[in-house]
Simulated assay, not measured.
Amino acid sequence: MRHMTEAAPAKVNLFLHVTGRRGDGYHLLDSLAVFGPAADALSATPAEALSLTLAGPFGATLAAEQDNLVLRAARALAAATGQAPAAALHLEKHLPVASGIGGGSADAAAALRLLNRLWGSGLDADALARIAAPLGADIPVCIASRPARMQGIGEVISAAPALPECGLLLVNPRVPVATPAVFRARQGAFSTPAPLPQAWPDAASMAADLLRLHNDLEAPALLLCPVIAEVLAALRATPGCLLARMSGSGATCFGLFATAAAARAAAENMPRDWWAIGGAPCA
């Protein structure tokens, strides 16, 4: 019996500009997304029906969901390929839920990659992204799980600047934040798309450019979840932190460091009741 596994790395928004709003209410964005250093883990074995079990430190949070996004992704792939939706899926949930790092989207993308292999569907990344798009605007960028620029409502994906060696520290105060509520609380004018270079020579140069940009959802998220300010303050007070910012709609924040080792060491100094992990982003 084949047993296959797939990582579902966190999606981290290094900046996030809200550039407009469509007539249907969806907001237009401009963002640079990178992945890691934390990830969920999805596994699958052949079965006669489709099922999903949950484990891991945040698995119980999803237990009440009647139709997990992983199962919806599995059924979408089966429908697109004429495959019977049958597999025993197991999700080890290591990423906080409703935390601004695309955990659900990453899990759905991992399901599409994993079942594409298990079922021998033979679809390429572009085909998987097309299947993913109706399930959620963040899922297509998670298919490749590599640095990318996201625009439109998240579905317009282009190449990211070449990233230098660096480290990321992710910190979450274990408080969920609802994305729709953050968008409703956002006020003020829309931002312009960001100017980005083709590459950064080092982490300090990248941090200097990113400091001129922002996350337009940080201010409304702070109103709804004030503890985010404490996380940002802790990151900014950490030696070696080149940039501290909230990711996505929060509450997870990240610190940018010159090396993965520095980010891992900084994680050890975060408050023990917070979730914190450091390392290198996915290349």
Rank of each mutant, 00 (worst) to 15 (best):
A7H: 13
A10E: 10
A10R: 06
K11E: 10
V12N: 06
N13R: 04
N13C: 10
L14Y: 14
L14V: 11
L14Q: 13
F15M: 04
L16M: 10
H17L: 02
H17K: 03
H17Y: 04
V18K: 00
T19M: 02
T19V: 15
T19W: 03
R21Y: 01
R21I: 01
R22K: 14
G23R: 11
G23Y: 05
D24A: 07
D24P: 08
G25W: 13
G25S: 10
G25T: 13
G25D: 13
G25R: 13
Y26C: 00
H27L: 11
L28E: 15
D30M: 03
D30V: 06
S31M: 11
S31H: 09
S31D: 06
S31P: 02
A33V: 15
A33M: 15
A33P: 00
V34F: 14
V34I: 15
V34M: 12
F35M: 11
G36R: 06
G36Q: 10
P37R: 00
P37E: 02
P37T: 01
A38H: 11
A38N: 09
A38P: 07
D40S: 12
A41N: 03
A41L: 15
L42W: 05
L42I: 03
S43V: 08
A44I: 12
P46A: 10
P46T: 04
A47C: 07
E48K: 07
A49F: 04
A49V: 03
A49R: 15
L50Q: 07
S51A: 15
S51P: 08
L52M: 06
A55S: 15
A55C: 14
P57C: 07
P57T: 12
P57I: 12
F58I: 04
G59C: 10
A60T: 13
A60Q: 14
T61K: 02
L62V: 08
L62Q: 10
L62R: 08
L62M: 12
A63I: 00
A64M: 01
A64K: 10
E65D: 13
E65F: 02
Q66P: 00
Q66H: 11
Q66E: 15
N68Y: 12
L69G: 00
L69N: 01
V70M: 04
V70C: 09
V70Y: 09
V70P: 03
L71R: 07
R72I: 06
A74H: 09
R75A: 04
R75F: 05
R75P: 01
A76K: 05
A78S: 12
A78N: 05
A78V: 04
A78F: 05
A79G: 04
A80F: 04
G82H: 08
G82L: 06
G82M: 07
Q83L: 10
Q83E: 12
A84R: 15
A84K: 11
P85W: 06
P85M: 03
A86K: 12
A87I: 03
A87C: 05
A88Y: 01
L89I: 04
H90L: 00
H90V: 00
H90P: 00
L91Y: 09
L91I: 05
E92L: 14
E92T: 13
E92I: 10
